[in-house]
Write a protein that binds this DNA or RNA. Sequence first.
DNA 1: ATATTATATCAATTATTCATGATATATGGA
DNA 2: TCCATATATCATGAATAATTGATATAATAT
Lengths: 110, 110
Amino acid sequence: MDSIEALSAFSALSQSTRLDVFRLLVKVGSQGLPSGEIGERLGVRQNTMSANLTVLLNAGLVRNEREGRTIRYFADFETMRGLLGFLMEDCCGGRPDLCQPVIEEIACIL
Amino acid sequence: MDSIEALSAFSALSQSTRLDVFRLLVKVGSQGLPSGEIGERLGVRQNTMSANLTVLLNAGLVRNEREGRTIRYFADFETMRGLLGFLMEDCCGGRPDLCQPVIEEIACIL
DNA sequence: ATATTATATCAATTATTCATGATATATGGA
DNA sequence: TCCATATATCATGAATAATTGATATAATAT
């Protein structure tokens, strides 16, 4: 992850529909969702959703796979990992107590 | 953290100077940096830096403290925690292996 | 009080981004 | 082949955001 990619990712996440889409895809996890269903669930028109999915795709935050006529989208956890690592780089120098709560926040509690 | 706050934070991080500022403040940690020194280190004009710091401030990503004539800025790890938690909410439903690498990426290795 | 230093705000121009109607492409079915 | 469905692209007007010169405020020093 470099600065250009990170900017692209943050920019993608800084718009309401796209943030909703990404969080939805994070929740559904590895099974992903078809483009059309994402649009229906969020109440967004077809071409608007398509444009927003393209932005997320270019930012590397989502992947897609064609499946017959529909195209299924998935959150890309690898990019997420790179993005958070980039943002928190060297965060712990001398004060791991600052960083620790951040880690705990996203820790899986199952 | 709600959607409005998250959008404000991502929007703040989606600009080159501000991303640099935030990462710098993450690195220096609890001692923070005076506004002027941030500008010098990043080669950004005074009023541009001031405007960008205000954006980060309004997004809750940084805090500041007056210290005589200078104003010292700090990364706000609490907001960071809320932001990442919001983004990864329910990420682990059924597949913690997707989420685990993301956590490991920001884990403190000292 | 006046000057100096540090930072913030204002106004205006330029540049980006967004949603949308219209249209194009791609797949599957009849 | 022709039609229907699913998704993507294009062009454009409207809204937002970025940079900057000029100026204002706030704290310290003389």
